[in-house]
Design a protein around this nucleic acid. Structure first.
Length: 721
RNA sequence: GCGCGGUUAGCUCAGUUGGUAGAGCGCGUCAUUGACGUUGACGAUGCCAGAGGUUCGAGUCCUCUACCGCGCACCA
């Protein structure tokens, strides 16, 4: 017996050595496969970009799940001799990373980012990002990912920055990107705007107060946020509401509302529900998205009363500089003291919080950059909008979403989509490629000239200097370009020609809108083609109690620990088997243990086969049933692979190997010399089928067989006759 | 409010197009000294959430109900 074949399989002894062999072979890079004659230059391609993990932290079991699925796809397709490319990368994750580093510095040094200054702070963030990056790369290798490291990208590196600036300028020139002053989602904690999608709703109990602005005010209104009411400039009622019709058009002056003067115009607007509350809506244009819209329709004045620190910015001594929550109590008390409060009722309410910082969102009017999703533009004589592009990509089946049910969710989301606020008041990210300089105007108000381009404009000695926009871009702007920015765009590279649109995008259903939709937007707009032909959505990995993995619960499992304990192959199998697309999965010790045992079983099968069989003598008629059976299995597995049913393929392989090959065929071979003769052949073919799922152990065993010159990873997938 | 998913053996879950229920773990009985005890053989356990319908036939299709989870919208 081969002395390398210890009685029990010891993964740690082999895994790193094998990964190194793979890397040294260069076969992760399709160019090398072509060069070495393993893949034909004219073969079909299979390409996939890695959803870049955030450098905020290191990988968790959810990432391991994603990597396992993708590596299975990639290894399978490579074995089909396709030109197979899987591009690695990491994501700078702007807000997430910045706020994490800010917290760290605050905790360790008691300083904030302004104490350090932009330059020094960014250095710290970059150091932090680099450290996490290195760990992430190490983790991905431990899991066995056959990523082409020679093409590794980072969402914030120079090449990607060029892509970002190029797209920004193109959209700016097409007037799809615009700058405007309007109500945005302001996160007082993170001190930045965020997009609608970055809001997380939390249900809390609130009190609905019904009151009048003053004793002689004719209409009562209801609100859960009395403190914003000092910013009211109108009361809106439904046009057909008989109760209030007579007041429409009038303006009422309120001399003292908690120390503020109000001027309230009564307006009629269809959007008001006469059944809700008093049927009258106090309009606060500066601090509500909906009220802002109403104010636009009726040319109402704007009265901001809350600042960026969620404090009252009014003159009233009662409220000035008070936190909004304090101001609420003060006003409630004031209303009661003045006998203006008519009703208080507890009510459930969804409050908006920022996904990354948990801060309570304060709608504020601000000058920001937006992508207009409804503006028409022409292409090939067709009138399009970004929304239409996003919708038709899926509706016309240019993109196929797996599982299908998410297509509906996608469509529904796009239909409700509003302009995307892309500017962030944070430092870590792609700086907006826009410069301004002051222009003297006749009436002495300041006006700016605006310049948008890839490179900064040259200063003119006769004129004031240009200065760049301070803001950075939403991280999803750069992620949206990922399928083509990683292939070298804006250069017209060979990679772009060869591998775009990518074959499949594999990612979690939780970022369908954040990311998948944005990639579709960017690619269809910039390149005029979809970013990928298929979307495979996986679910969440939960702990054994079904809870989401989260830091506060402390139930995060480090894939590296699991690998040490059970082997990379076992971790992959435990994650894959039984978990269909779009379904959440639970990870448990029992499952991991079961596949560790399976690896050992395979190992011992190898020991037996090597001792008892040779690579020959297939043509024995009495073994035909075994060969037929195997061919049926191969076919079954192949169909599953083609249809993204990895969870079924893996399970079937498990059963065949253990309960057919080991329990029946090997047992039979102990009694029948003829059966022995096909063991080697059958087992080698099985190793090929198993390889995408359990790459390490299969590669190791493969290397122990006689006549195995090539690495298993580039062997041909068993063919169907 | 609109929509989606789940509800199958003690536990965790499969069941791709409708043909009298499956796996792993756990449990029981037995076997086995050399591929593997990280083993093998055999076995027990299910009104497939509930009600109705289509069908020769439904876990699988349709309708409704209940509970759990999720997304979106509303949130004056």
């Amino acid at each position: 017996m081969n002395e390398e074949l210890t009685k029990a399989y010891n993964p740690t002894e082999h895994e790193d050595v094998i990964y190194k062999k793979w890397e040294e072979s260069g076969f992760f890079n399709p160019d090398v496969c072509i060069e070495k004659g393993i893949t034909s230059d004219t073969a079909d391609y299979f390409s996939i970009v890695l959803p870049p993990p955030n450098v905020t932290g290191t990988l968790h079991m959810g990432s391991a799940f994603m990597l396992a699925i993708e590596d299975i796809m990639v290894r399978y397709n490579r074995m089909l001799s396709k030109k197979t490319l899987w591009i690695p990368g990491t994501d700078h994750a702007a807000i997430a990373t910045q706020s994490k580093v800010e917290k760290l510095i605050q905790k360790e040094e008691g300083k904030n980012r302004h104490d350090l200054g932009r330059e020094e702070f960014l250095k710290r963030v970059e150091k932090f990002a680099k450290e996490n990056h290195d760990i992430i790369v190490h983790q991905m290798k431990k899991i066995g990912c056959s990523l082409d490291w020679s093409r590794e990208a980072f969402t914030l590196d120079e090449k990607r920055n060029l892509a970002v600036k190029t797209v920004f300028k193109k959209m700016y020139d097409d007037e799809l990107i615009y700058r405007d002053y309007k109500v945005v989602n302001w996160d007082p904690k993170g001190q930045t705007t965020i997009s609608d999608d970055e809001i997380v709703y939390e249900e809390r109990k609130a009190v609905m107060y019904t009151f009048k602005y003053s004793k002689d005010f004719p209409i009562a209104i209801s609100t859960t946020r009395p403190e914003t009411k000092v910013g009211d400039t109108a009361v809106a009622v439904h046009p057909n509401d008989e109760r209030y019709k007579k007041y429409v058009g009038q303006t009422f002056e309120v001399a003292d509302f908690a120390g503020e003067k109000l001027s309230i115009k009564i307006i009629a607007d269809e959007s008001v529900d006469p059944e809700f509350g008093t049927g009258a809506l106090g309009v606060t244009p500066a601090h509500s998205q909906i009220d802002w819209d109403i104010a636009q329709r009726h040319q109402l004045p704007l009265k901001p009363v809350i600042n960026e620190y969620a404090r009252m910015s009014v003159d009233s001594s009662l409220l000035k500089d008070k936190k909004v929550t304090e101001a609420r109590e003060i006003i409630v008390q004031w209303l009661k003291d003045n006998s203006l409060m008519l009703d208080e009722k507890e009510t459930p309410q969804n409050i908006s919080t920022a996904e990354r910082t948990g801060g309570i969102i304060e709608p504020l009017p601000k000058l920001q950059w937006f992508i207009n999703v409804n503006k028409e533009f022409e292409r090939n004589g067709k009138k399009l909008t970004l929304k239409k592009l996003m919708l038709s990509a899926v509706e016309d089946k240019n993109i196929n979403i797996i599982p299908e049910r998410f297509e509906k969710e996608y469509t529904h989301w796009i239909e409700n989509l509003r302009d995307w606020c892309i500017s962030r008041q944070i430092w870590y990210g792609h700086r907006i490629p826009v410069w301004y300089r002051t222009k003297q105007s006749l009436n002495k108000t300041l006006e700016y000239e605006t310049y948008c381009n890839i490179e900064a404009p040259k200063n003119d000695s006769n004129k004031p200097d240009w200065f760049q926009d301070e803001d950075t871009l939403d991280t999803w702007f750069s992620s949206g370009l990922w399928t083509f920015s990683t292939l070298g765009w804006p250069d017209q590279t060979e990679d772009l020609k060869n591998y775009h649109p990518t074959t499949v995008l594999e990612t979690g259903y939780d970022i369908l809108f954040f990311w998948v939709a944005r990639m579709i937007l960017m690619s269809t707009y910039v390149l005029g083609e979809v970013p990928f032909k298929n979307v495979y959505l996986h679910g969440l990995v939960r702990d054994n109690q079904g809870r989401k993995i989260s830091k506060s619960l402390g139930n995060n499992l480090d894939p590296l620990d699991m690998i040490t304990k059970y082997s990379a192959d076992a971790v992959r199998m435990a994650l894959i088997v039984g978990t269909g697309p779009g379904n959440d999965t639970k990870i448990s010790d029992e499952k991991l243990k079961a596949y560790k045992h399976f690896a050992n079983k395979i190992w011992n099968i190898a020991r037996f086969v090597l001792d008892n069989s040779q690579d020959q003598n297939l043509e024995i008629p009495e073994n035909k049933k075994y060969l037929d059976e195997f061919e049926a299995l191969t076919k079954d597995i192949t169909v599953d692979m083609e249809n993204y049913r990895f969870y079924l393929a893996a399970e079937k392989l498990y059963h065949y190997t253990w309960h057919t090959f080991a329990d029946i065929i090997i047992e039979e071979s102990k009694k029948n010399e003829n059966t022995k003769k096909i063991l080697m052949f059958l087992f080698k073919e099985q190793l090929k089928l198993l390889h995408p799922f359990m790459p390490f152990i299969t590669e190791k065993i493969w290397s122990l067989f006689p006549n195995s010159k090539n690495l298993l990873m580039v062997e041909k997938w068993p063919s169907l006759s």
